[in-house]
Nucleic acid binder design. Structure first.
Lengths: 348, 348
DNA sequence: CTGAAAGCGCTTACAG
DNA sequence: CTGAAAGCGCTTACAG
């Protein structure tokens, strides 16, 4: 029982161990300690060993703040996730993508800084803060849009940037290609091979560049193959997907196959169909642009595009390290595949 | 055209504006600048105005590293998310929780640092790094377990911690209460009122403390009300939920109502039931412990426990600010409610 | 190979 | 109210 009643808990109470403490104990200067712990040449092996010994003994850890002040890199990559409400349909994608990013970064001793933003303006503000504070060495940008304001700001600041699903390139900005057109063709070919010639695509948010790419590929396939195709905007709000489904089915010439831009949209669609008494896949086939656990457990199970988001994350991280280090980093290939399940079959 | 051909892009090329630059331009010392920009007393209003003017003109931003070195708080709260694979069923919970946390933190100028960890050991390592680097002022811990190793480490380090769904309290650790027992009673009462007397609970991971609380409340309700209750471990793997569902329905005395610990598990369960030709809710009622968009679009729509995770996040953030500032912060109440949809009805 | 010193950008006593 | 200086914990030329 000491007399510190009323003392407020202070996390900083333990005085920090510094290189000066180590220097004193080891009988050298703090400069020597710095050299030793950083593995630079300038001290004898014996001295270095002794210094490292003392450092370990004292549980020394370098002061991140001091190192940053001296210009050390943050060894951190930033990623801003856009508003949760908007991305619910893509959450599985995000989780996998992040897992891939982290696995590559952590191999190299880098970490990932995540933040959520309510809108694109907030996202830009976060990037500016990160850069000004030197908290990140570079950032990853998802879901690029046409004339994306984020990219303009990042390019103007000259900050290392990787755009996932983009196309532009510069000294400080690289793009990781995402084959939206190819994926759409994969889906369409699958349906076409089954015999479908009236296909509808319930798209996602059209402000995203990838949505436009998908729509273009859809149209192109339809034209080239004589498919009667139709596109309808769905956004990420599942109730829109429901409305779209109803309208499509109410048509005098309803489609025999529906492609939904996300698994959440596909679920909304499939339950709407079941409410309308439309059998899947007997009456209508359904494909989800995103595979998830739910696709596997639903009844019927959903044919889905499996995008390998983990690999995509790995590639994005590798590209970033390459951009920062100016040296090549291994590139795994990303492959999208269509997982054929119960929700697609030949039309009657 | 300068002669910098071959120059490598360097994000730090623009020399940083410091308070010394401001001091020079304003004709004062850097000490005066520091006082002025921090709103402290010690300079005349005129001088302060001039200094702020120059600071804005020069686009000055304080060096985060230097401020941290001087002992400034990070004004950042940390949150580690456990492995994506495990939490898929809780993702909507996470997204909402994080949104709530951020809304309260940003009001006070705090930010949230997120990181994903593969397991609990990795999570502990992240916490230790954060603390050693002074990157966060405190951390939020989710999904406490019995004898949780994370809490031991954090308590030993004396680092401000808020445990969501915990019970322990100390100088540096507070718990936000989550009424798992009450929620379970809500669900059970709903089913009991409908007339169900044979109810099964497909639980989540039993290493989580909240699972134990739910199981205990389940048993207590059954005993008190003469309900024939059964608990079966489901984990977060939906295939386990499927197996559990099959086993329960194969029983000579199958339950008339099933409670699943997450929406993903409930979806797995409901599609298993439909595969077995069991009608919901005609033959069996189903409740999901977690509301989500999917619960609303599924056919039948799912009766679910709506937990108001946004508010829970707000409370956790408010508790943290309170712990750090030693002053009370407004507390919104969290309320869980059961959303009655199509999947529950009276037993035949 | 080692020591002494300057400096990163800020804050904070301490004199005037 | 203002100025000059020390110090936070590190790194890095520069002498010896």
């Amino acid at each position: 029982m000491t007399g510190d009643h009323g003392a407020v808990a202070d996390p900083r109470r333990r005085k920090r161990v510094t290189i000066a403490d180590i220097a004193e104990r080891a009988g050298v200067t703090s400069g020597a300690v710095s050299i030793a712990v950083n593995g630079k040449r300038g001290v004898s092996d014996a001295t270095r060993a002794r210094i490292l010994e003392v450092a370990k003994e004292l549980h020394w850890r370098p002061s991140h703040a001091a190192q940053t002040l001296m210009g050390k890199n943050a060894e951190t990559i930033g990623l801003v996730l856009s508003r949760p409400e908007e991305v619910i349909g893509e959450e599985i994608f995000f989780a996998k993508f992040i897992a891939g990013v982290q696995s590559v970064l952590s191999e190299r001793g880098y970490s990932l800084q995540l933040q959520m933003a309510a809108d694109i303006a907030a996202e830009i503000a976060i990037h500016e803060n990160w850069i000004a504070d030197g908290r990140v060495d570079g950032v990853l940008v998802l879901d690029p849009r046409a004339e994306d304001p984020r990219l303009k700001v990042l390019a103007a600041l000259g900050h290392p940037t990787i755009v996932v699903g983009g196309e532009t390139e510069s000294d400080t900005l690289r793009s990781v290609h995402v084959d939206n057109a190819g994926s759409m063709r994969l889906i369409m070919q699958h349906l076409f091979d089954l015999g479908h010639t009236r296909i509808a695509y319930v798209s996602g948010d059209q402000s995203f560049w990838h949505t436009q790419q998908r729509m273009d590929a859809f149209s192109a396939f339809c034209i080239d193959n004589g498919v009667w195709g139709q596109t309808i905007a769905g956004n990420f709000d599942p109730s829109l997907a429901k409305d779209a489904t109803r309208r499509l089915l109410a048509s005098p010439q309803p489609p025999t196959a529906l492609v939904y831009d996300s698994d959440v949209m596909a679920i909304a669609g499939i339950s709407t169909l079941s409410g309308l008494g439309v059998a899947v896949p007997a009456d209508v086939s359904v494909v989800s642009w995103e595979d998830s656990t739910t696709c596997q457990v639903l009844h019927p199970t959903l044919t889905a595009l499996n995008r390998d988001a983990v690999t995509l994350g790995k590639i994005a991280a590798a590209e970033m390290l390459q951009l920062l280090a100016h040296e090549p980093v291994e590139h795994p290939p990303v492959h999208a595949a269509i997982v054929h399940r119960e929700s697609t079959a030949a039309p009657r």
